[in-house]
Simulated assay, not measured.
Amino acid sequence: MSDARAEGKKLFTDLQASLKDAQSAFTGLAAEQKQQCRTITEAAEKASRTAVEASEAFAVSKPRLMIWTALCAALLVSGGWLAAFWVGRHDGWAAGQVAGRQEALTANAAASWANTASGKMAKQL
């Protein structure tokens, strides 16, 4: 029976040692978790400060951004007007040239006919 007792005592001491090891491991894990929580908290606070600084910087630069946006829009509209004017003028010039040429050809043909025998007879009538 003494072997069983010795074996039981050995198992109990092994269990006790295992529990002490587990307790120290859990204590170490708890300390590591607290450290990680502190790190996360510090990172979150830093990110919050950075976001506040960025929003303040944007609030300061917003009027300047609006001015640049308005200037760019005005330039785009003016460019569109100039392009439309140039295209319209060019098309109008081409149409005027064609109409003028046709008018000149018609007048030239009429003058040429007037100098023919039929044209002179028509003038006398």
Score class of each variant (00 low, 15 high):
residue 123 K to V: 07
residue 2 S to T: 09
residue 11 L to N: 07
residue 95 A to Q: 15
residue 62 K to N: 07
residue 73 A to K: 11
residue 41 T to I: 03
residue 47 A to N: 15
residue 92 G to W: 01
residue 124 Q to P: 00
residue 107 A to R: 06
residue 73 A to D: 13
residue 76 L to N: 04
residue 31 A to M: 12
residue 22 A to R: 12
residue 6 A to V: 03
residue 35 Q to D: 13
residue 93 W to F: 10
residue 59 A to C: 02
residue 21 D to A: 15
residue 31 A to N: 10
residue 20 K to Y: 10
residue 29 L to W: 09
residue 89 R to D: 00
residue 1 M to H: 10
residue 4 A to P: 00
residue 4 A to C: 07
residue 51 A to G: 08
residue 44 A to T: 09
residue 98 V to S: 14
residue 27 T to A: 14
residue 48 S to W: 09
residue 15 L to G: 12
residue 31 A to R: 10
residue 87 V to M: 06
residue 29 L to H: 13
residue 98 V to W: 09
residue 46 K to E: 11
residue 26 F to Y: 12
residue 66 M to L: 14
residue 48 S to A: 14
residue 7 E to I: 13
residue 36 Q to S: 11
residue 122 A to W: 06
residue 111 A to V: 01
residue 11 L to R: 07
residue 33 Q to E: 05
residue 103 E to S: 05
residue 103 E to F: 01
residue 65 L to N: 02
residue 3 D to Y: 07
residue 43 A to P: 00
residue 19 L to K: 15
residue 94 A to S: 12
residue 93 W to K: 14
residue 55 S to G: 05
residue 11 L to E: 11
residue 122 A to Y: 07
residue 121 M to Y: 04
residue 50 T to S: 11
residue 53 E to N: 08
residue 120 K to Y: 10
residue 91 D to Q: 14
residue 76 L to D: 02
residue 70 A to W: 03
residue 32 E to W: 05
residue 44 A to P: 01
residue 116 T to V: 05
residue 70 A to K: 08
residue 62 K to M: 05
residue 5 R to M: 09
residue 120 K to L: 14
residue 8 G to I: 06
residue 67 I to F: 02
residue 23 Q to E: 15
residue 108 N to E: 10
residue 48 S to E: 13
residue 71 L to I: 05
residue 92 G to F: 03
residue 10 K to D: 06
residue 21 D to T: 13
residue 33 Q to I: 09
residue 78 S to A: 15
residue 123 K to M: 11
residue 40 I to Q: 08
residue 59 A to N: 10
residue 72 C to R: 10
residue 69 T to V: 08
residue 76 L to G: 04
residue 73 A to L: 12
residue 12 F to H: 05
